[in-house]
Design a protein around this nucleic acid. Structure first.
Length: 430
DNA sequence: TCTGGGGTCCTAGGACCC
DNA sequence: TCTGGGGTCCTAGGACCC
């Protein structure tokens, strides 16, 4: 248990995706910018758009009504990833202890660095904020406190371009304003549960005795309770994420379909995509899960244990088909399919069992190596399995576009982002 | 918040074993 | 056969995050 007071910083980019778009294209600055065109709902909205009433998750036709001059763009993850990397790099100039929490958020441990920087924690945080704004071309919001949970409350307190320090004497004041459901890690279910005990605000929660936390709550919530009381129990995780526990691919289609072949093709395509990602990370799955979501949003799924870890669709189609047949009900309209590759292990760690056919497996490995290199040159799904072909017929929506002009555009945009930040041109893997 | 896509972690309970 | 206690492993499902 860490016993001396810590200074944990949380940094949150303001309207990150929209800000990146404005940073690469100065003509968009000062204008309402929205990303998420490919999904039909708002992923991110610039502050100009938010001022006009645009919110996250809003449907785009609605946006066009309330904000006809909105610039609506498809998401461009390569550009966002480049800005994200630069953001973490800037933070590491101030402290080596950085946790890359998500594409637009980071935690950092500043404890003990006042002497090194000859500055208070507040002015270190302020320098970080200002450096970000100067070098990225958009603002971030920052919170500093004794724990991760409190730092996160701080960064949310004032946005955009905010800096909030929550010292031990300020904790109560901040918590008394905050509904318990707004705390990081407490969702609607837990908020409703806590309400049964008369807990409405974060302060109500923090004030309950430890015996309450021990008796009534599970581990994640006990940890939050400690953190709210200024005791740091959640570490800043500085090791970069190496691997995945699972890889999933999902796709919603509108309108919902009752066509067996079409629904299976969607599933098969998800499987191919999940496998491509697994191979890129040199991972192989020992378990395959699939889910079908009906029109009414009910899910049913099943799970299949695999005989041997694999990332080759050809080896998985039998299992996929078997699972699908178990789940599929004729006449039921489905709107989404999902594939999950789980129990992932490093490919290099895979051993042949007595029952495997090494020759066949080697052949398959060579085949997929060829498929992957063709895709690298000519684009994803240059080579595709027959079973996933029937997705082509009615999904002409954005996202399924295969034409080269989009790809060309993406490349150009990626280069623009690099030039913006002075990064050498080269392929980035997301 | 009427709902897109991609993840993580925790717990309860059953199976099985000594 | 009313019959302890304890451990491990696995799975289903819940809850939450961005």
């Amino acid at each position: 248990m860490i016993s001396f007071p810590r200074a944990i910083l949380h940094l949150d980019a303001d309207a990150f995706f929209a800000s990146c778009e404005q940073a690469v294209n100065p003509a968009l600055r000062g204008r309402p910018v929205i990303t998420g065109k490919e999904r039909g709902i708002v992923s991110a909205a610039s502050y100009e758009a938010k001022a006009r009433g645009v919110t996250r998750g809003m449907r785009l036709f609605e946006v066009r009504k309330i904000c006809p001059d909105a610039v609506i763009l498809p998401s461009d993850y390569e550009t966002y990833s480049i800005f994200s990397l630069r953001m973490f790099e800037i933070l590491r100039r101030f402290t080596p202890d950085v946790e890359e929490y998500s594409i637009d958020e980071a935690f950092a441990d500043l404890t003990g660095l006042r002497r090194f920087h000859r500055a208070s924690y507040e002015s270190i945080a302020d320098s970080i904020r200002k450096t970000m704004a100067a070098e990225l071309g958009f603002t971030v919001s920052v919170g500093v406190s004794l724990t991760k949970v409190l730092a996160k409350i701080g960064s949310k307190h004032r946005k955009p371009n905010g800096l909030t320090i929550i010292g031990s004497r300020d904790i109560e004041e901040h918590l008394s304003q905050l509904p318990v459901g707004k705390i990081w890690g407490i969702g609607p279910n837990t908020a409703a549960y806590l309400a049964k005990f008369g807990i409405r605000t974060a302060l109500d929660f923090a004030r309950r005795p430890e015996s309450f936390a021990d008796k009534a709550l599970s581990k994640p919530y006990r940890e939050i309770w400690h953190e709210l009381n200024g005791r740091s129990v959640l570490p800043v995780i500085t090791e970069p994420k190496q691997s995945y526990q699972s890889i999933s691919k999902a796709k919603t289609f509108t309108p919902p379909s009752t066509d067996r072949e079409f629904v299976f093709a969607q599933l098969a395509k998800n499987l191919e995509n999940a496998c491509i990602k697994a191979r890129r990370h040199n991972l192989a799955a020992q378990r395959l899960s699939l889910f079908l979501r009906q029109q009414d949003f009910r899910d049913n799924g099943c799970e299949i244990k695999l005989d041997r870890p694999t990332s080759y669709p050809a080896e998985l189609f039998n299992a996929l088909h078997e699972g699908f047949s178990r789940l599929y009900r004729p006449g039921t309209p489905y709107r989404q399919t999902t594939v999950v590759l789980a129990d992932l292990v490093a490919e290099s760690a895979c051993q042949y069992t007595l029952f495997d056919d090494p020759v066949r497996i080697e052949k398959m490995a060579r085949l997929y190596k060829a498929v992957d290199s063709l895709s690298a040159r000519f684009g994803k799904h240059t080579v595709q399995h027959c079973a996933s072909l029937p997705t082509r017929q009615h999904t002409q929506h954005a996202g399924d576009r295969g034409d080269l002009s989009h790809r060309r555009k993406d490349l150009i945009r990626g280069e623009t982002a690099r030039r913006c930040l002075g990064i050498p041109i080269g392929k980035i893997q997301i």
